[in-house]
């Protein structure tokens, strides 16, 4: 299956020269502010590389966004409970990754849990009815994504999948791969906070990355050094409402259907962004048992508990 390019808009880059070495290109994709920072390339080469990286992000968005009716995700969801849908290697790999995540997280990370949005109305800020919540929970389960070679089918007509849990992170990794192929050795990709570094600054110094304060949107709570690898953050402040003094955030446990409460935010360092993002989300979902999981996974992290206490490794 080929990606039909006419459906993909080429993102417009805003160029910011920071100094003679570093150039930052900003663009919008995946409903987020994005940036590509490049050092050590000529002005033209840097722009060509950044544009290709941005195009790659746009391609992934067009192919996997659930907001686009022509995306493969929308077509799989539309055919739920019905016909098998043919998928290409990339899509199959992403679905297999989702299955690995479900297995490794003992069912906490589930790309079919988006159905919970039907009962949780974050705009209205209302709690769902118990009965509708339990009906919806019955639709969740990665094991009910039937994968047969290059065909996929959702077992129940009401099921849906959503690759939002790692799609942006995957796009950051792919964009970094595009930059690497263009000869970039010093730079990073930042897609709305999901960050993948290709290598340190030309001077050999690491990039210094700020981590947003989960309760003061204008401030950073810490800064971390990153040479290569990825950083992703999962937090309870992205989308939430408060009801009777209780915060209900958008990260919902697929087993209980309820929002997580133990952590304000968890930032994870991993070799690739798709891993960092998934690790951060699974850690949020593991609530009080997050840190032992992150330790066992061998990654660096900064976790901020509900009471503001910080834990780092």
């Amino acid at each position: 299956m080929r990606d039909t390019l006419e459906h993909i808009e080429t993102p417009a880059l805003e160029r910011i020269e920071l100094d003679s070495q570093a150039t930052v290109f900003r663009f919008r994709a995946m409903a987020s502010p994005c940036e590509v920072c490049v050092e050590g390339l000529s002005s033209l080469a840097a722009e060509v590389a950044a544009q290709k990286a941005a195009n790659e992000v746009a391609r992934i968005e067009a192919k996997y966004s659930r907001y686009r009716s022509d995306s493969i995700v929308s077509r799989i969801n539309a055919a739920a409970g019905g016909d098998w849908i043919a998928i290409d290697d990339e899509t199959r790999s992403l679905l297999e990754f989702a299955q690995s995540l479900a297995r490794e997280s003992e069912g906490l990370f589930d790309i079919t849990s988006g159905v919970l949005r039907r009962v949780w109305d974050f705009r209205a800020g209302k709690l769902p009815e118990e009965s509708s919540l339990s009906e919806t929970l019955a639709l969740i389960g990665t094991e009910r994504i039937l994968l047969d070679g290059s065909n996929v089918r959702l077992a129940d007509a009401l099921m849906e999948i959503d690759l939002g849990g790692f799609g942006k992170e995957y796009a950051a990794d792919r964009a970094a791969a595009v930059l690497a192929a263009e000869g970039v050795r010093h730079g990073f990709v930042n897609l709305g906070g999901d960050l993948r570094a290709l290598g340190p600054k030309q001077s050999g110094e690491p990039w210094s990355i700020g981590i947003a304060h989960p309760r003061e949107p204008e401030n950073t709570i810490a800064s971390i050094s990153l040479r290569t690898g990825a950083l992703a953050t999962s937090g309870d402040y992205e989308r939430f409402f408060e009801h009777d003094g209780q915060r209900y955030c958008h990260i919902l446990n697929p087993k209980t259907g309820r929002p997580v409460t133990h952590w304000q935010s968890i930032s994870v360092l991993a070799p690739v962004c798709a891993a960092a993002g998934a690790l951060a989300t699974i850690a949020m979902l593991r609530e009080a048992h997050a840190l032992e999981f992150l330790d066992a996974q061998g990654c660096g992290y900064l976790a901020i508990r509900f009471d503001g206490e910080r834990f780092a490794r």
Binding site: G164, I209, G210
Partner: peptide
Amino acid sequence: MSSKIDFAGSALARCAPS
């Protein structure tokens, strides 16, 4: 599901040598 990192104090600012 990952959240935004505050840009003002983040990578972009640190990309500059200052």
